[in-house]
Structure formats: C-alpha cells, structure tokens
Design a protein around this nucleic acid. Structure first.
Lengths: 233, 233
DNA sequence: TGGCTGCATTAGTCACACCTAATTAGGGAT
DNA sequence: ATCCCTAATTAGGTGTGACTAATGCAGCCA
C-alpha cells in the first residue's frame, strides 16, 4: 500500500514539528502545509483511523507519529536529503534551491534509483545543509546540537546544520561563509534580541538573532571523538 | 496554470496515438492509460471545454491535440526523454528501466533542473532508445524511418529507434545487439508473419515479426547527408 | 467559578479523477 | 433500408483532499 503525495507531506511535516515541540498541532500543520485548519483535522482523523495507524491523534491535542508512521516519514526524509545531496554534488544546484527541487522529486523516485544515487555519492551522511541522512532502516544516529543564538559570549563551535526552508536565509548565510563545517565563535551577545557579533573564518560579522536561531552548532562528544578537531585550534 | 499529473498523462498519450493513427480514440486511450473508457470520455470533455482548449474532441470521433496541447505534450516528452538519457548516461540505469523511472520523474522536474541536466549531457538529441528529444520550443526535426518488418530481403539500414514500453522487449533486443545506431540487413523474410533472418554486426539472427515491428530503421536523406555511412559498407 | 479568547472541530460543498451499469450512436453486412 | 455489433457515451456513485461558515472546547484570567 503506497501513500499518496498528500499523506507523505503530512507525515514529514508532523515529524518535523514533533522534533521542535514534541507534538504537531493542527494550526502549525496547517501553516506548514499551506492548507486550512479543517483540512488538517480531516486528514489527521483519516491517518489515525487507518489500520495500521500512522498517526496517533486526540482531539484538541495534536498529533504524534506511531512507530510505523515515523518509519514512513523517515523514508521520505531519506529520499529528500539524498536527492538534495545528489543535486548539489552531482549537478551543482545551489544550496538554496535544492530543497524546493527535492520537495517534488522525493515522491517520484524509486527505491532502486535512490540506491543508485546513494552509491554514486559514496553513501553520504549529510545533505548540503548539514542534516543527517537516515539509513535504509529509517534510523538516524543521535547528534547533539545547540542553536547558535543560545551560545554564550566567548563560546565557539562548528556549524552542524542550518534550516533549509528559506532560500533567502540560505543565500545570506552562504554570503557570510556560514555553511556546515565552518567554525564560529560568539564575540558578543547584545541583549534583548539584538544581533550577535561572530567571528567566522577570521572575519568579524554581525548576524541578526533570527538567522542565528536557524543555525545549529555541533556539541562535541564528551568522549573525545571530535577532540582532534577541537584542539586543532 | 500548471497541469495535473493526469492531464499530462492524457496529453502525452494522445500525442503518441496521434502519431500512430492520426487521432486518439477513446478505447485506445483507455487501454494505454489503464483506465475505463468512461473516464476517458469525461477527461476529453473537460480538456476540450477548457479555455484555452488543449484538445479538440468530437463525440465518437476521438481526440486531437490543439496547437497549444501539442506544445504542452512536447514539453512533457522533452522532460521524459532528457530524464531517460540522464539516468542512462549519468547514473548507469539500464535502458529497459529508464522509461518507467522517467514516467514518474517527468512530472516532478523543474525547468531549471532540466536545463542543468541538458547542460551536463551536452544537449543530447536522442534518448537511450533513439527517440529524438524535442527542443525547448517543443519542436522536433523530421526524421524518416521505416519499420524493420517492412524492409524487403536484402535491404539494410541503421536502427534509428525502438519502442520503449516493454522492458522484456528491450532486454531481448539488447541481447541481439540491436540498439540504436546498429546496422542491420534483412537476409530473408518468411511469409505469413514468420520470423525475419537478419544480419546484425556480422552475426545471423532470427527475429520474430513482433519484435521487428517495434524497431524503426533510418531512411537515409536523399541529399546524401548520410551517404558516407551508406557507402562505407 | 464564570466567562472570554483563540484554536480546533463539525457541517456542508466542491473539483478531480476514477468506477460500473445502462443506453445510444456509427458503420458495415444483409 | 434495416439490423446488429462494437465502441462510446450518459447516468449515477465513490474516495481523496481541499474549502468556507458555523459551532464547540480548553485553558486562562479575574
């Protein structure tokens, strides 16, 4: 039983909102998917009524993915991120465009084509925005990150990933050299949501609080796996 | 105004049937699209009622594409064939699988991604089955071909293109070395739909009438453009 | 505890694209 | 000219996924 395009989009959106808030509310889903709230209620009812259920849903209390729903969602995310990486690496599509392209292609690609792409890319672990690519089993390694705007003055770290929905934001970040892997240091935090002063690749930059909140900084493993990188400074 | 996936599939099917028979009948469309005949009638009514119309349709008389409909259909065929060529050349997808993959991807690819793929491939003129790829303007150069099973004994020519819908046929042809560009000669024709005896790359082969009918042989230009090839024998 | 406010749900439609069953039209054979 | 057969159309219905308008619930503030 294959899932319709709409259903796939709902599952992916629920997965992402769950990551942010623990559950996906009707309103948030409606906004993210660009549909009216009643459409969301209707879909959640159907998804939770299906056997086996993909979503668990209680009225007025939002939705969560079931184990199976999460698996399906992860498969879609795998498609999406592999496609992004392929477009970026193999075809040179700019990193602010790959998300939009992948949004359509993720529903059209076959498993065998996906396998071929992964092969060609050497089975990458991340997409162009630094997001981890789930394995074929739908599982992801855990990775601890912290939002750049939550770092204190003087702290530093390496950019792990950036939110990919807004092309303008991505272009802005790229123009500042802020791509995954880049090392940044917080020079100063202005209070009350003012801009951050950062050191990026030796340059001092002012970055607004909004863009900063879209950037995740890697938290090094405590067991020293990433120690080499940290001490190379 | 973008066309739904179904509409795109109808336009493409009408284009192909028009090529074979001059017009697309309800029944033929239903068979090709895998839907019931009344569904086709309904769609043709909608397509011909739309302003601007994509299809001209008279009851019991089948459908034809309008100028605009043909343009749209050609755009889809361009997507399809470029994707086939890309999968074949850039990803090594076997030629009997590319059609099926492209069937889904053709509806999901953006113009800008298509341009990038065309660029990467050096703006190819044919797909892996030898079919011509329409230009961005939706136009195709004319090319004269004749079905292999219509060739007389002793005649020879170069394979221009082969039908791509049946993977088993494609595997069969590939196993005989019968791919676009290959030179074949008709050694003998059995009467009453018996097999053809061919010479392919120096080998003598028996080929059934059904497979032969799916192979188109190039008819050399009369002005001698392809003369060099013909006389090199 | 009562009431307000905002968010969510129910109620009722619509368009799209499909289906089966019943009817009608076209075109060749008698 | 009529009959018959096949193909196509009309009639009536379904599931999906969306919408607007109207109603209902939850949680907060007083």
């Amino acid at each position: 039983m294959s899932l319709s395009r709409s259903v796939q989009d709902y599952l992916k959106a629920i997965l992402e909102l769950e990551g942010d808030a623990g559950h996906a509310s009707t309103g948030d889903l409606a906004e993210r998917l660009g549909v009216a709230a009643p459409s969301v209620t209707g879909m959640l009812r159907r998804l939770s009524a299906a056997r086996p259920a993909l979503v668990s849903y209680t009225k007025h209390r939002g939705a969560r993915l079931t184990r199976l729903g999460r698996k399906r969602a992860m498969e879609i995310v795998r498609h999406h991120r592999l496609i992004e990486q392929f477009l970026f690496e193999a075809l040179g599509v700019p990193w602010d465009e790959v998300h939009q392209e992948a949004e359509g292609l993720e529903h059209a690609i076959s498993e065998s084509l996906e396998a071929r792409m992964a092969d060609r890319l050497g089975h990458p672990h991340t997409d162009p925005h630094g997001h981890l690519i789930p394995g074929l089993d739908g599982r992801l390694p855990r990775r601890r990150t912290i939002r750049l705007d939550r770092l204190d003055s003087g702290q530093f770290g390496r950019i792990a990933e950036v939110r990919d929905h807004d092309p303008a934001l991505l272009r802005h970040l790229a123009s500042l050299g802020m791509v995954p892997g880049t090392r940044v240091r917080v020079v100063e935090r202005s209070p009350f949501g003012g801009p951050l002063t950062l050191e990026v690749e030796g340059e001092i930059r002012q970055v607004g609080i909004q863009p900063s909140s879209q950037v995740q900084i890697a938290i090094p493993d405590s067991n020293g796996a990433a120690k080499g990188e940290e001490t190379s400074e």
